[in-house]
């Protein structure tokens, strides 16, 4: 295995899927010679001219057209430049892509992927910085993933492309330049499976996307306070891997959920409710804790921006307070 950047692992997955299946193609703004706003398709244009459909600035039209192409046998990957702009094609995601299978009694399917960068930390302010995968996880018929590592972004993208359902694929911007081991061979990371990233016995920290590296970092620091934290990467919000979470909580009895989304009605609330409804409830020896973004649009000023979402030190502090340490 070699170390790769998240962004490179993602690009590799896209190229390999282009090569594997003639029906896979990509649509999006500035994805040609410019290489996309974050550079995911940089350098691809030469070889994959026919696969990269560069569009006008028409998000509703792009996603709607991708739905149509998917209905008749293509497997489109749509790049939406910032996840904030998902509000524009909401109709074709929620009323069309998500429901067409069910409404037609299983006649139609919509195998498409909508990839999009999310999150704060770059000073792009309120309309270019939010994380809201949970909104989509609320909708039956959609799958929602948010890979945290180079290994997962490659494997999950491939799984998403090969899935027969519409998949929302969230990439936190600050992850693009992180590194990790990525195998050369073709592999899949299954949608709907969480993973224990760090074993521990005292508390279960459930994280997703950018909060995974932050939680792992916090777990290291918590060792110095004698706290042995288990960290779970949720990876997929829909479907949600209840089994892995429930098992872990039965072991540790304590839980902290860490979300980059703002807190109200966030995905952590769903995880919490699943736990309360499960056998894990009897094993809880401390009230379930959530750490999430503040209920504000993301501010521009860097100190305010940082304070709006959970940072590593917030996780450390929260866990210490649970243990009175």
């Amino acid at each position: 295995m070699t170390e790769k950047l998240y962004i490179d692992a993602l690009a590799e997955a896209i190229r390999e899927e282009f090569d594997r299946d003639p029906n896979v193609f990509m649509m999006g703004e500035d994805i040609g010679i410019y290489g996309g706003a974050f550079g995911v398709t940089k350098g691809m244009y030469e070889k994959y001219k026919d696969k990269l459909i560069e569009t006008p600035i028409s998000e509703a039209g792009i996603v709607g057209a991708a739905v149509g192409a998917a209905l008749v046998g293509m497997r489109p990957i749509v790049e939406i430049m910032f996840s904030d702009f998902l509000t524009l094609p909401m109709e074709w995601i929620v009323n069309q892509a998500a429901k067409l299978r069910y409404m037609t009694g299983g006649q139609l399917k919509v195998p498409m992927v909508i990839r999009t960068p999310m999150g704060s930390g770059t000073g792009a302010a309120a309309q270019h910085s939010q994380s809201f995968p949970a909104i989509f996880a609320h909708i039956p018929g959609l799958k929602v993933v948010m890979p945290a590592t180079p290994y997962d972004v490659k494997g999950l993208l491939k799984a998403a492309v090969r899935d027969d359902n519409p998949v929302l694929f969230f990439e936190h911007k600050l992850l693009y330049w992180t590194k990790g081991e990525v195998p050369e061979e073709d592999y899949i990371v299954p949608i709907g499976k969480a993973e224990i990233k760090r074993e521990g016995k005292d508390i279960t920290i459930i994280a997703g996307s950018i909060t995974v590296p932050r939680s792992l970092e916090a777990a290291e620091e918590l060792k110095t306070y004698g706290i042995d934290a288990e960290v779970i990467d949720i990876k997929s919000l829909s479907p949600l891997d209840e089994e892995t979470i429930v098992k872990s909580v039965i072991k540790t009895g304590k839980i902290l959920i860490v979300e980059d989304d703002n807190k109200n009605y966030g995905w952590g609330a769903e995880v919490l409710s699943k736990l309360v409804e499960s056998e894990a409830f009897d094993y809880l020896d401390y009230p379930i804790q959530r750490l999430a973004g503040k209920n504000v649009p993301i501010p521009y000023n860097p100190q305010l921006e940082r304070a709006a979402v959970p940072q590593t030190e917030d996780i450390v502090q929260k866990v210490r307070s649970i243990f009175d340490k």
Binding site: Q127, Y300, P302, L304
Partner: peptide
Amino acid sequence: AELLGKETGYCKGRGGSMH
């Protein structure tokens, strides 16, 4: 002041250039 994210800016540092 807004571009520098300051309280004295048009949007009190909350908005920045695009807002």
